[in-house]
Amino acid sequence: MIAVVGYGMGNVQSVVNALDHIGAPNAVTEDPRALSKADRILLPGVGAFRRAMERLEKTGFAAALRAGAAAGTPILGICLGMQLLATTGTEFGETPGLGLVPGRVERIPAGEAWRLPHMGWNDLDLRRDDPLLAGLDGQGDTACYFVHSYHLVPDDEGAISATCDYGTPVTATISAGSVYGAQFHPEKSQAVGLAILANFAAL
């Protein structure tokens, strides 16, 4: 059972629809205690870092996610959910994150010619083997749907498993132990995205 963290940040229904479609048992939960019983945790989210962290702290999900990571439960953060895994967010001032992946969330250093948000389909450039990305290498089209202005810059560059190019390399996926993140929306990235969700469900 994948526990989908329901903390009021974004379109959770899309994630549920995609998990249902691939036949991965899941349940949206608003109760942080449910995370200790889940065998996988999915943290979705769109919106602002600070507001999301406030909600995670206030609801008790932040502590439950840290406990889940310590117990080795696979966690997948999507979009803002991935950024929240970092130590620090920098939008509207510095905000402590969940601290599950040492690093900072920085504005994409795109030049003048590059509009922000970075919005649309962009190719994944695979940096190393990663179970989340199994089967994508050499599959031709690997474009996924991104929409964001900030990205996670991990202290250990080795945590990055894929990037995409937006005038500068943008962090697309990360993994550190049992903690995974996807900056794009796999639930909105058709076959490639559904394959990534299936990989997570099979970890």
């Binding site: 229904q13 629809n17 995609a18 479609h21 749907y145 639930e187 909105k188 990235s189 058709q190 995205g193």
Partner: peptide
């Protein structure tokens, strides 16, 4: 529509 729409909507 959303149930089987795996693209941005």
């Amino acid at each position: 529509i959303a149930r089987s729409c795996f693209m941005p909507l």
